[in-house]
Each structure stands twice: as structure tokens, then as C-alpha cells.
Write a protein that binds this DNA or RNA. Structure first.
Lengths: 141, 141
DNA sequence: TATTAGTCTATTAATTCAATAGACTTTGTA
DNA sequence: TACAAAGTCTATTGAATTAATAGACTAATA
């Protein structure tokens, strides 16, 4: 399961992606519309800003807006930002790699082979799932 | 990430699958060979027994052995047993289904659509990953 | 009947998750 | 220029989960 943080982040991003470019949206608006505790949301948006996905404007008339193109924001990146690795086993991640204690030879490990395949497929799908793609899927029903 | 419990369970199952049918294997042996804390392993094996995957024999000459055929034990079932749902979102699981608070219409939700696809692909792969399959992959390198 | 080996219940330490509180800083505008 | 709006930062907390440990109990075999 992904954390609430990640889910909230995705909801907020989709919400912002539907607004006009560069238009600052209040945290309080996102919080109310998407039913996300405001203080919690503040931290999330800040992280998304630090990651270069969002930008913000302070003071009156301020708020958050998408910095990256909705085409360039995918679910794999968002999940990694908040939940860490997507892989189900540490010996199968790229950035957070950790060797298994009990494993003699990693290359010939049947368990690893299975979970490597799962990871690759999942990452593939999540990378294709951009904000644009998510909005497209919404409309098509 | 899967829990250590699940990982230990898989390691223990693969270990048992390599032994002769019906031959009871000591908990202590599995614990040592697979580097799993013995007390922790006891609980795991008990759960696998309750799930009908393993059987045990008490007293001298006792131990655990596979009850199901290695062909019928797959990673999806094992993961579900210890870690619960495989899906990344509650609105996309079968048995643990929960509606999203903020979602107006589930059928047309673009986020859900993405994560449903991820879930289905993952479950597919994990169901094919039986103990037999894992052992086959080990040899093939 | 002693010994071996699995079963059961309870507890604990550590970590992570989700949320909250409050003070601080920046900025637009009256 | 001062006030109010709105984002930023640091700290804390409660709950839940994970990983592991301890110890008493029960069943089976030689």
C-alpha cells in the first residue's frame, strides 16, 4: 500500500494540473476540495516544491502551481519521493539496494528473479502514468 | 517493500520445497540455514500451517514439511497471508476494499485506473511465481 | 518416563505513519 | 508603511505496525 502522504500528493497534483498554468492555488482550497488535513498538506506541497515539481508564491494572492509540465510528472517519481523504493525487495532496488543476508549468489536467486520482474513491470506502468495520462483516463469514461 | 516476515516465509518455503516429500525438517535447521531468528520463524511456520500450506509432526523426529504441492504455492498467496493486500490502493483491492473519501466516481477515477492496472499485473506475475517456478529459475543460471 | 520438538500467550523495543501546534517569514495592498 | 494574507520551518505527539524475545505448555517417540 502507498502511504496517505503519497495518495494526498497525487490528489493535490491532479487537482493543480486541472487549473490554468501558473495560477497560484491556495493550500486551503486544495485542502478543502480534496479533503486533506491542511497542515499535513502543507508539508507535502513543500516536498513537491523541493523536488522541483511545484512552485509557490508567498503573500496575498499566493499559492501553489505546477512547475513541471503535467506530461513530465509521473507516479513513479511521486511514489519514490514520499514512500521510497517501489521494489518489494531491497536486493531489487536501484537506489536503495541492499544485499540479502542469506543469499549465496544473487544472480542465480530464483526469488530475486521473480521480484525483479515485478519491480520492472510496476516501474514501467508507473512511469507511463503521468498527470496528463491520469486526466485523459478520467475523461474517457 | 514486503515485510521480513514474508521474506522469511518465502525463504523457509523454498528451503522445504527442496527436501524430500513428507520429510519433517527441524525449525532449528531452517533457522540456522536461512538465518532466521528461531522464535520468529516458529510463528511464521505456524501461520503457514494454519493456512494449509505446511504440515508438522511433533516430538522426536518431528518438524515441518510441505503439505501442498510446490506447484500450488504461489507468492501472491504467501504475501497476502503475511502482509495483506497486494494492491497499492485500498480502492483497488478485492478482499480489503475501501472507498476513497475524496473520490466522486470510482469508475471514472484516473488514479484508480492506473493503480488497478498495476495491481492486476503484479498479481498475475506473483500467481505464476510458484515454488516450482522459483526453483526452476534458480537452476537456469 | 525422559527427552525432543512443536504450540501458545504475552511482552517489548524500535520504527514509521499521520496529524497537530505554533512561531516565523515573505509579500501584496489599503 | 503597516496590516493581513499566505507560505515556511521546527518540534512534538499518539497510534499503529514491525521485528523480535521470553517462557510456559503440550504432544509424541524411543
Amino acid at each position: 500500500m502507498i502511504s496517505k502522504k503519497t495518495k494526498y500528493a497525487i490528489n493535490a497534483l491532479v487537482y493543480l494540473a486541472k487549473k490554468p498554468l501558473q495560477q497560484p492555488i491556495l493550500i486551503s482550497e486544495i485542502s478543502e476540495q480534496e479533503k486533506i488535513p491542511q497542515k499535513f498538506l502543507e508539508a507535502i506541497l513543500l516536498d513537491l516544491k523541493k523536488a522541483g515539481i511545484l512552485a509557490s508564491k508567498k503573500g496575498k494572492g499566493g499559492g501553489y502551481f505546477l512547475l513541471k509540465s503535467p506530461n513530465d510528472v509521473n507516479m513513479a517519481d511521486v511514489m519514490r519521493l514520499f514512500d521510497g523504493p517501489i521494489a518489494l525487495l531491497p536486493c531489487v532496488t536501484h537506489k536503495y539496494y541492499q544485499k540479502c543476508e542469506e543469499c549465496k549468489d544473487e544472480e542465480s536467486c530464483g526469488i530475486r528473479s521473480v521480484f525483479l520482474e515485478v519491480r520492472n513491470q510496476t516501474v514501467d506502468l508507473l512511469k507511463k502514468a503521468t498527470l496528463t495520462e491520469i486526466m485523459k483516463r478520467e475523461k474517457s469514461v
